[in-house]
Design a protein around this nucleic acid. Structure first.
Length: 351
DNA sequence: AATACGGGGGA
DNA sequence: TCCCCAGTATT
């Protein structure tokens, strides 16, 4: 197939006549705002990211505002959104742009790409939306639309597949109109060529879609990799002492990096309450007699992509500081609301 | 090349 | 339950 012009012609026509999708960052030209929206939307549904974006832009309208904001406030706003390294990278790049680039967002694709937290997709999105440069976005929508319309069975999560789809995407791109084209193909994937139950009946590619003709819409795009799941058991100790409570900031190479938590005792399996309270992992932290267990929650479950967390919260009051808690930080209970916690903990604290 | 990284929503 | 979502960084 030499002439692929039909693709952007049909797509742009659909976009201008049928596409009713509206989002606050659509048509935005400020690279800072586009950047924020794109980072928030990485692996995140528009519906989920919408409120975060609006609060973010309202609170920090420019890259300079963001660079000078207290980090904990930024994490607090990001709380519950997940993939917290995005927030870390946002902070790093905001400071870099403000301090080293004099607050001017880079315009060259390679320079945009070099920023922390920005990969192929986000660099193409910013370059095209903000500066109308001819770089095709390749996100989950694009993989799906192209795999179906062109009947491509190469797994999209293989090295070969990523290369193939990226090349095809750049061939198909309307070079004179990259911003509209990129926006259109993602809207099209989200609205018509959806993952499940796509609207083939009203699809303008009806006549040309290979997958539709071959009845393979359901199986495309192909993914080959499966994720491994593991189950973990968290016992959180909420240890209070005269209106203060012990907390910990997660720093290990693990989930929820940089977020706060309470005193964590992780066990290899589900341990009964009574047994846990007699375990050395527990008693060695608190000593034998200077504490009182006030309440133990039920087991809460949080599903992550690679892990299932089973956890309980144990409320404890202590009177003196004999406990072996030096590695934790003691803060007033009323200050908890300023810290960013994993959703798992934040939703427990809500109740 | 493979894997980890959150949380939510739809079927 | 399983799959997917405006992906990226690390090993």
């Amino acid at each position: 197939m030499k002439n692929k012009k039909f693709f952007f012609e049909i797509l742009i026509k659909w976009n201008r006549n049928e596409n009713k999708r509206e989002m606050p960052w659509k048509g935005e030209k400020d690279p800072y705002k586009i950047w924020i929206s794109e980072i928030i939307l990485q692996q995140t549904r528009v519906q989920q990211g919408l409120n975060y974006y609006n609060r973010f832009i309202k609170k920090w309208p420019t890259v300079n505002d963001l660079a000078n904001a207290p980090e904990q406030e930024i994490y607090k706003l990001w709380e519950g959104l997940g993939y917290y390294s995005r927030c870390r990278n946002l902070i790093t790049s905001a400071k870099y742009i403000t301090d080293t680039l004099n607050g001017k967002f880079p315009e060259k694709y390679a320079d945009i790409l070099s920023l922390k937290g920005i990969g192929d997709y986000t660099a193409a999105a910013i370059a095209s939306f903000a500066f109308n440069q001819p770089y095709a976005v390749v996100d989950g929508n694009v993989f799906r639309v192209l795999a179906r319309v062109f009947g491509i069975e190469t797994p999209v999560d293989s090295t070969e597949g990523k290369k193939l789809f990226k090349e095809l995407a750049n061939e198909l791109l309307d070079k004179n109109n990259p911003a509209e084209y990129n926006q259109a193909i993602m809207d099209f994937g989200a609205v018509i060529c959806k993952p499940a139950v796509p609207l083939c009946a009203e699809c303008p590619f009806h006549e040309r879609c290979i997958a539709y003709q071959k009845r393979t819409v359901e199986v495309l795009p192909v993914k080959e990799k499966k994720i491994k799941q593991r189950t973990r058991f968290f016992n959180y100790l909420l240890v209070e002492q005269d209106g203060n409570i012990y907390i910990n900031q997660r720093t290990d190479k693990d989930i929820w990096q940089n977020l706060y938590e309470f005193i964590l005792v992780e066990t290899g399996s589900l341990v009964a309450e009574k047994e846990f309270l007699h375990s050395s992992a527990f008693t060695s932290l608190l000593g034998k007699n200077n504490f009182k267990v006030n309440r133990i929650s039920k087991i809460y479950i949080q599903k992550l992509t690679h892990q299932t967390i089973n956890g309980r919260f144990i409320h404890i009051k202590i009177k003196n500081s004999k406990a072996n808690l030096k590695k934790y930080k003691l803060i007033p209970v009323r200050d908890l609301k300023n810290l960013a916690f994993p959703k798992f903990i934040a939703s427990y604290l809500q109740d």
